[in-house]
């Protein structure tokens, strides 16, 4: 449904993404895995269409051509500091032009946003902000969603609820692409892994293959190798 053909991205003189070719299939549960600065966020932003590749192309199939087909939850909290949760949701709901939104209500329910419904963003805890960030990014009920470290600071109970909910969406056909440094989340939310380092997509594999050492990396002492070895802990 989404295809990367030798996609590169440069900023100034440095290559942040170096000639990546890969495909995301409908219904995938995919995680992009790699050390800090590997280019994971950059690749997600390219796929979400927020930035354009310096060279190469990204093609989407028809199911993703609609205006609200792609959801993106940024690593930063892209929220208005002094607006309330309620105001945020109402604002974005208006933006996408929908009146009744059962999907949004479902999210509100799952993430228990009503508990801090009328609080301003700058009055929320880190985990609460993450929940709002997630809800806002998915309010348009996307067909594919890119989540950049969505669970940072979210407590275990809420994380559990969010994971369940994302899996439920996936079973309804929503494609999920995410970045995390949390092996537990990978185990619960991913089937496939893209292993990245220094802007290179080194390997595509299933989570099982990675966990059972069925892959070989060119540099066995790299940060990526170490990260993989932590899955047991």
């Amino acid at each position: 449904m989404l295809q990367l053909n030798s996609v590169s991205y440069q900023k100034g003189k440095s290559d942040l993404i170096q000639s990546v070719s890969a495909t995301v299939q409908p219904g995938d549960r995919l995680t992009i895995f790699g050390p800090n600065g590997a280019g994971k966020s950059t690749l997600m932003r390219l796929m979400a269409g927020i930035i354009q590749p310096s060279s190469g192309t990204i093609t989407y199939d028809d199911s993703l051509s609609g205006k609200n087909a792609i959801g993106y939850i940024p690593q930063q909290l892209a929220l208005f500091e002094n607006l309330t949760v309620k105001e945020h949701l109402r604002f974005y709901q208006k933006m996408i032009g929908s009146k009744t939104n059962p999907f949004m209500n479902e999210m509100i329910e799952t993430l228990q946003l009503k508990d801090f419904w009328n609080k301003r963003i700058d009055e929320l805890s880190g985990g609460m902000k993450r929940k709002v960030n997630l809800t806002v990014g998915m309010i348009q009920q996307p067909k594919i969603v890119f989540l950049d470290e969505p669970f940072v600071g979210v407590d275990l109970a809420a994380k559990h609820d969010m994971l369940n909910w994302l899996n439920r969406l996936n079973s309804r056909g929503v494609t999920i692409v995410f970045v995390t440094h949390d092996w537990q989340v990978i185990h619960e939310l991913a089937d496939k892994m893209w292993l990245m380092e220094n802007g290179d997509l080194l390997h595509e594999a299933t989570v099982d293959e990675v966990v059972h050492d069925h892959i070989e990396l060119p540099d066995t002492s790299s940060a990526l190798q170490k990260m993989i070895s932590f899955h047991r802990y």
């Binding site: 932003r45 979400a48 269409g49 927020i50 205006k67 609200n68 792609i70 959801g71 993106y72 940024p74 930063q76 909290l77 892209a78 929220l79 208005f80 974005y92 933006m95 996408i96 806002v136 990014g137 309010i139 348009q140």
Partner: peptide
């Protein structure tokens, strides 16, 4: 903050 990018996504 990324708010503009986000708006770009929905509209």
């Amino acid at each position: 903050d990324g708010v503009l990018e986000r708006l770009q996504m929905v509209q």
